[in-house]
Design a protein around this nucleic acid. Structure first.
Lengths: 239, 239
DNA sequence: GTCTATATCATGATAGAC
DNA sequence: GTCTATCATGATATAGAC
């Protein structure tokens, strides 16, 4: 019956998402998924056609919600400030805060998705990345235009590059926060639970804003505050 | 004979690295590697014990060279400025420029390694990440201390977080430069070859320095320039 | 729609001759 | 050190009864 259909479908989706987040999608077998979901092995082929169809469905479900959220925030900003250029900080928050808040969400599945997303973006040969950037194309276009208007002095090239850098910083803020702690012998091993979404978000936002509004690199010439030591960077081989 | 041994070993290492960069290490079979290297299938087990031993060897080879390079640059900086605190821009360049320059290197294998490195860091269940952060531990410690001395007004927590953010920005600067171009309908599809290492490095350095020296988020209170709209961020579900 | 059973294939690892 | 041949395993996908 129909209610059974969507129930089974969503059960598979949930189980797959959780396993993908821990193991990655190609280290996760359909047998693991169907066992965790307590459904039959063949049901995934029935509902999603193939394993690839399943992982695509996993991403689309969360990604659509995430990007809808971002667009809603941006629409609200643009409605409130009629015609006026938005503040860069508000644009950044509309884009990045849904991601960070999802990543710190109490729901374990929801929280696990964000690192999974970041990881899957860096799979070059994957069909997934194509699906992800396709799902993002409208959002990127909207936010790029908003940033352009809010920073009229910064050339478009630079905006796009810096937007790209900000994506990377946010990615590491989320998925790698715990990873490098041991490597850098983190001075405060006792992490407070309260050091969660809001604090991380503020740390990140300060950094992103600082980078976004940094003085432009005077292309060609060497910037005053950013001097490259020629002897250090030109000689690639070491003594 | 001995010359044959190291020759075979390095041939395998090169072929594996190249394939890993394109496909990822766990989408690459030993049969692919040995075919590309024109060696026997069993030779990888003979020389590296197992497939895992091979991938670990692939990473160690390049990583050691990269980190030696970084440490040499830092040593040179500290020798030149005796006792004095280093400029943050110089510390950042000593750490990040070897990575970026490798990523833009003319050698295809060398260039391909950096995205591979970034991707493998985001595999949570992997034994590789442990090896990578182990290989980085001395470098991180040295550069963390250098940054601390060069920015005495910034608390240690913030330094470490921002260092982490910078790693992310650099990662995306390198591995994803081409990835999101289509998604954001990049305005200049014709990419000049000259837009390579130096220009990218300057763009990145401006951003990193801006973020590193950004005003601190006044922890607890809400910063003036960074206001979160409560109605927009608390209501997670959309109409 | 769900289940069992199976087909088909690719992988990592090893045994043993040379 | 290198090779051939093979094993054992686990993967996706499908056929066909219910």
């Amino acid at each position: 019956m129909s209610s059974q259909r969507t129930s089974t479908r969503n059960t598979i989706l949930d189980a797959a998402e959780q396993l993908f987040a821990v193991q990655g999608h190609d280290n996760t077998s359909m047998r693991q998924i169907t066992s965790a979901a307590s459904v039959n092995l063949s049901s995934v082929n029935y509902h999603f056609g193939s394993k690839d169809g399943l992982v695509q469905a996993v991403f689309q479900r969360r990604l659509r919600a995430l990007n809808d959220e971002r667009l809603a925030l941006l629409n609200e900003l643009e409605n409130n400030a009629k015609g006026e250029a938005l503040k860069p900080s508000h644009v950044l928050e509309a884009f990045f805060s849904p991601l960070v808040l999802h990543a710190c969400s109490p729901g374990p599945d929801e929280r696990a998705f964000v690192p999974l997303l970041e990881r899957s973006m860096s799979d070059p040969g994957g069909f997934i990345r194509a699906a992800i950037i396709d799902e993002h194309s409208e959002v990127f276009s909207r936010f790029r235009q908003a940033l352009l208007k809010s920073l009229p002095d910064v050339p478009e090239d630079e905006i796009i590059w810096r937007f790209h850098f900000m994506l990377g910083a946010t990615s590491y803020a989320i998925s790698g926060a715990e990873a490098l702690r041991s490597a850098m012998d983190w001075p405060h091993p006792q992490q407070k639970e309260a050091e969660s979404a809001q604090v991380l978000l503020q740390r990140l936002m300060s950094f992103l804003l600082g980078g976004l509004r940094a003085p432009l690199p005077n292309s060609g010439a060497v910037p005053a505050c950013n001097n490259i030591n020629p002897t250090a960077t030109n000689g690639r081989s070491l003594p």
